[in-house]
Every structure is written in C-alpha cells, then in structure tokens.
Nucleic acid binder design. Structure first.
Lengths: 147, 147
DNA sequence: GTCCATGCAAAAGGTTTGCACAATC
DNA sequence: GATTGTGCAAACCTTTTGCATGGAC
C-alpha cells in the first residue's frame, strides 16, 4: 500500500504510514478528526492539516474512499480490493444519523449492480471504479421514539 | 405541496412558496446558494438563512431530498412521488465532479433494490423511506484527458 | 393579537492554505 | 543537497444561530 504511494511519486513518511495504520486497524466511517486523534497514539506530533493532506492523496491514489453522508463531515475508509462487496452499503437513520452497514443480501444485489455497471459504462462511456448504495429511513430505536 | 407544510404546522409563506417554485422548475442538484439566487427573481428580499431554514423543513416534511456528493456543499431536489425511480441514481466523475443522472436500466435495478429493501427492513427493523445509488469513476472527457 | 417566520450580521465548525522548518530520497 | 512533507495558525466557506422586525393565521 505504501508502494502505491511511491508509484505516484509520494514519499512514504512516518505520518502517512501512521494514518494508513489507523485506517487498516479500525472500524469504518472515520472522520479526519477521528483519524487525527488515533494517529496520535502512534505518532505524537502529527497535525490535523497533514491528516487532511494525506487523506486527499490517498483518495487520489485510489487507496481510500471518501464518503459524505448527511452532515458536513467527510468520512474515510480503506478500499478493500479482495472483493467488490466490502463496504459501501449503508442504512442511514435520518433522525439520529446512525449508520448501519449491511453485508447481507449483497451478493444478489451485486450481481445486478455489476450488470447495470456494464450497461452504464457502455452507454455513457463512463469508467466505473466503485459504487455506493444508501438507504435512508428510520432505525429501530427512532421508530419506537416516534410512537 | 404547500398542504404538506400546513399539515405539519408550518406556515405557507411567500418565501417558502418561492423556494418550492424554484425546486419545481429547475434541474436537480441545486445547492442552497443556487436556490437562494434563483428565488431572488421571484421574491427579492429573501435571505440565505431563510433558504437554509426552509430547506431543512422541507427535508423533514419529506418533500425534498438532501444529497451530499464529494464536496461539502449540500444539494437539494424535490422527491418525485409518481414512481420510485425518479432521481437518485448517479454517475459521479471523481476528477471533474460532473454528475450524470441515469434513468435507464433502473427498472430492473429497482426490482432488486425493492427486494433487498424488504429483507433489510425485516432484519434490522429499519423503516426505509428512500435510497440512493452512486457510481464513482471517470467520465468520457476525463478518460480522454488522462491519456 | 399572537405566534411563527424573516433578514441581517455574527458565530460556528470542518477544511484548506501560507509559511518557515523538518524529514525523505 | 534538493525537494517534498509537516506543524502551526490564520483564512476560508458553507451552514447555523441570535435577535429585533415583519407577516401569517
């Protein structure tokens, strides 16, 4: 993964490695500040600005995916290359903003999405790199609270 | 549509009607500032803060959908009630940030999404209100530029 | 007439940028 | 040793909020 940085002419500095480490070893949907705080344990002097700069590079290089849910806080996660169904399927509660990742039923969904991808690529001459599906609605607790 | 405002206890003011008008009569993916600028032609004295306040209400009431693409600018569009396949399928170029809406192939896609929706609702006790699919990649022009 | 909505300006808060210093190759 | 990356603080820009005034019911 550090190799990918060097391939693109970027240096593999201690700070960047620390950030990659954080992304590798934690749950998803981390904000820049989350990453900044966690990276401190490995590498005390890192600054928030560098975290942002590194994340931008990682997104451009294709290692990291940047999300925007409903709020203005960007969230980041590693792109898993093992299969296409890693991570980008979410249930988002519009009341409490909780995010549930689901991994079920993704196989069948994926089959169709792949097919659609093929159609779309051809029709719009668009090179698809990845995708994201979001369902908006009410989570269990917020349904109860509404009653 | 104004009725829906009143049902929820909100007043149907001139400014709010102007905003609904803008949303009804323009293309999608408008930012708050876009709406603010366009609303000025109908209703000169409207302020940006009121646009934000109105948009928040419209989202809560379920008339408008709020999007976040890659940047920090929120975008808004009317929710079409006629069918489920109105609007929330996008191809997003990660280089030039162009957004292409596609309407093709949505029928089949929708069938599966609906099915997945049912499964997910049951499993997570989540009440799904709407969904969005985004494909990230490179648009035709940006592919050419890369060469 | 009461209460809600508005406009303006100021504040908030996530992200970006300028600059001198430090680290990498 | 040259160039790229970093930390800090200040700037930026979208969105939110406070408050006195205006408009809807």
């Amino acid at each position: 993964m550090e190799g990918k940085l060097k391939d693109h002419g970027y240096r593999a500095t201690t700070g960047r490695k620390a950030i990659l480490d954080v992304l590798t070893n934690t749950k998803k949907h981390l904000s820049a500040e989350d990453i900044y705080l966690k990276a401190h344990s490995d590498y005390l002097s890192i600054g928030l600005a560098s975290v942002y700069r590194t994340l931008e590079i990682l997104v451009n290089v294709g290692i990291v995916h940047k999300f925007n849910f409903r709020d203005r806080i960007a969230r980041y996660e590693l792109i898993k290359e093992t299969n296409g169904k890693g991570s980008h399927h979410h249930l988002i509660c519009t009341v409490c903003h909780k995010i549930i990742d689901y991994e079920d039923f993704v196989d069948e969904e994926l089959a169709l999405l792949k097919q659609t991808e093929k159609h779309l690529s051809k029709k719009y001459n668009f090179k698809i790199i990845n995708h994201m599906t979001q369902y908006f609605g009410l989570c269990e607790e917020c349904i109860k609270k509404e009653e």
